[in-house]
Structure formats: structure tokens, C-alpha cells
Design a protein around this nucleic acid. Structure first.
Length: 346
DNA sequence: AAACCGGGGGA
DNA sequence: TCCCCAGGTTT
């Protein structure tokens, strides 16, 4: 334990830290909710979702008794939808196994769906003041630069090394404030690009700063190239209803809904075979599709949206749902399709 | 250990 | 364009 380091850090934090809603509570439920939402998500992007979820589910009982579809609908647009499915499972798990209260115990927290090392440490420290160090992207970067860590942060050995380092630096008497401060200085000062070393209280002892190698840290492993995929979506409608289907495969957007889809292996400017339900009543296919490129972190999606007008939407089959156009907003869709609906005025 | 899983914003 | 974000689960 390095009390001097932590003392300086926390002093900086008390003066410069942001006031955020989840920092002004000790309720484990609210802290947990914020941590799940903020996984791989910027504060400004997650903030409205945090408010929205708390309005709909002030207590964990209400979240647990909600439908997964309702949760996915509220999560729409935030990405990494397994977080939403795990959120629901975790709420039920806490009710069943822990009587509705998050346990003040790292290993028990760690056993809850969607809670890994970081989130378990965050809840343990923020809600219960237990001395577990949080190591998120901000902390990796700050420690990596300050100590000149040459081990990749995304390797198993790297994670272990940074965890041990963060534990040594922690003042166990001030776990919550120390952890908030570690992340905050990484976020506000020790930024990925052009960090504010001039105003950093630790620059005079920072390895990367002293050797003018700030941009060399943190060291990371290789990144995988993104794959291209080609989607043709069909809005089959009689002006009143259309067809949608839930994605259940082990693939992107699991649990969300989408339009009838034909996926091709290469770019094509004309529609492939129409979906089954569009082949009746002399379908009128739009001459030109609406094209959209949608970038995920690991995939590049090229989508064509074809509008198919038919006389009447017959009852669905093959797992499709027939829904009113005016009810589309009650289902959770990927952002790619939400954007298309908006362009169509739906 | 490596692959997979979204969407947005800043430089 | 590329990088990164209050990471976790699956293979």
C-alpha cells in the first residue's frame, strides 16, 4: 500500500473530479446498473440510458420482472446487447440467490452474470468500500505510462501484472475514492491522444513523460481485421403491416428483431430472390434500394433495403411476426434498421 | 490465448 | 481512416 501516492491522487480527484449521478449513491443496484451500461461505453453515451433505466426500473425487483424484450427495447442503440440480456438474468439471479441485495463480497459478485473482474471490483469498492482495485481502460493507460509497462495490456500476463500493481497502489482505507480517482485521472488527464501532462500532478515521476514516450503506451497486441458482410433487407408491406423476425443465431444482434434478410457473400446491385411472403399478389419492388454502410468494431456491413409493396399481408410463417408499421417502435432493432425506419418515415 | 460482441465520437 | 470507450463471455 502506497499511502502517499493515493493521497495525492485523491486530493487531485476531490478538486477536479466530475460529479456523476452514480457517484452520489451507495446503492449497489444503481452502481451495478451504471457499471454494466458503461462497459466499453463513454459516459456521455451511457448517461441517458442510465436515467432511462432508473425511471423504468427504480428497484431491482422491477427490472427482474420485466420482459427481456422490454429491456432490449430500452437498450436499443447502445450496442453489445449481451449486456442487456445479462442484465436481466443478473437481476433475477440476485433476487433468487441473494434475496434481492448485491452481496458485499468480491467472489459472489463475480459469480453474477455479466460481472467480471472490473465490475466486481467497482461494486465492491464503490458500494461497500472493499479494497479491490478497479482496472479499466483508463487505469491501464495511466499505470502503463507512469510505470513504463512494456507488457501488453490485452494479454493474460498483462492483466495480472496491472491488477497486482493497482492493488499495491491502493489505500485500503479509501477504496471507493481511490478507485474513482484512478479512473478519473486516466479519463480527464492521461487521455489516449494528446494527454494533459502539463496539468498532471504525476508527470514529474511519470516514466513515459520523462522519456518522451507517452504515445508509446499502453502497449497493445494485434487487432483483427474487420470482415465485410452484405445484407439485403426487405420491407414487405401492404401499407399497414410488415414482417419481422428475431435474430437467434450466435451472431451479432442476438435477441433483437430485423426485417426479412438475405445475406450474400459479395456486393450486388440487384435484389436476390424475394423472401417467400413477398412472392404473392404481384409484388412491386422498389427500383432502387436504400443503401447504407454500418460499421461495427469488427465487421463492415453493407446493407440494401428494398421496399416490397404487396396487396395484403397474409398470416406469417417460418418464425416471422406480422406487425403493424405503427407498432415497430415497440420492438428492439439494431441501429442499422432504426436508421432505415427513420429514413422511410416510420 | 484468441475470437467475438455495437455504436459513437474525436483527431 | 483509426482509435478507444467505467469489459465480459465463449471457444
Amino acid at each position: 500500500m502506497d499511502q502517499e501516492f493515493s493521497k495525492n491522487l485523491r486530493q487531485w480527484y476531490r478538486k477536479n473530479g466530475r460529479k456523476l449521478p452514480w457517484r452520489s449513491t451507495k446503492e449497489a443496484y444503481k452502481i451495478w446498473l451504471s457499471e454494466i451500461i458503461l462497459q466499453q461505453t463513454r459516459v456521455n453515451q451511457g448517461l441517458p440510458y442510465y436515467e432511462k433505466f432508473l425511471e423504468n426500473f427504480p428497484f431491482i425487483e422491477q427490472l427482474a420482472s420485466a420482459s427481456e424484450d422490454q429491456i432490449l427495447r430500452l437498450w436499443q442503440g447502445l450496442g453489445y446487447y449481451s449486456r442487456a440480456r445479462n442484465l436481466h438474468a443478473a437481476a433475477k439471479q440476485v433476487l433468487r440467490d441473494f434475496n434481492g441485495e448485491f452481496p458485499p463480497d468480491f467472489e459472489k459478485l463475480r459469480s453474477i452474470k455479466g460481472i467480471g473482474d472490473y465490475t466486481a471490483s467497482a461494486i465492491a469498492s464503490f458500494a461497500f468500500d472493499l479494497p479491490h482495485p478497479v482496472v479499466d481502460g483508463n487505469v491501464y493507460r495511466f499505470l502503463s505510462r507512469f510505470f513504463g509497462m512494456d507488457i501488453p495490456i490485452d494479454s493474460s500476463q498483462g492483466k495480472k501484472a496491472f491488477n497486482e500493481l493497482a492493488l499495491e497502489l491502493m489505500d485500503a482505507q479509501h477504496a471507493a475514492e481511490h478507485n474513482q480517482a484512478m479512473m478519473e485521472i486516466g479519463s480527464l488527464v492521461c487521455k489516449p491522444i494528446s494527454p494533459n501532462c502539463d496539468e498532471c500532478p504525476f508527470s514529474m515521476a511519470c516514466h513515459a513523460y520523462l522519456y518522451n514516450k507517452v504515445s508509446d503506451y499502453p502497449v497493445k497486441g494485434k487487432k483483427q481485421p474487420s470482415k465485410k458482410r452484405y445484407f439485403h433487407y426487405f420491407l414487405v408491406t401492404d401499407g399497414i403491416s410488415t414482417y419481422i423476425k428475431r435474430r437467434n443465431e450466435k451472431d451479432i444482434w442476438q435477441g433483437l428483431f430485423e426485417l426479412p434478410l438475405v445475406e450474400l457473400f459479395e456486393l450486388s446491385d440487384f435484389p436476390p430472390a424475394l423472401p417467400e411472403m413477398a412472392k404473392i399478389h404481384q409484388p412491386t419492388v422498389s427500383k432502387q434500394p436504400i443503401k447504407r454502410k454500418h460499421i461495427l468494431s469488427h465487421q463492415e456491413l453493407h446493407a440494401c433495403f428494398w421496399k416490397v409493396n404487396i396487396v395484403k399481408c397474409l398470416p406469417p410463417k417460418d418464425g416471422f411476426l406480422r406487425v403493424k408499421l405503427s407498432d415497430l417502435s415497440t420492438f428492439g432493432f439494431p441501429q442499422l434498421i432504426v436508421n432505415y425506419f427513420e429514413q422511410e418515415g416510420l
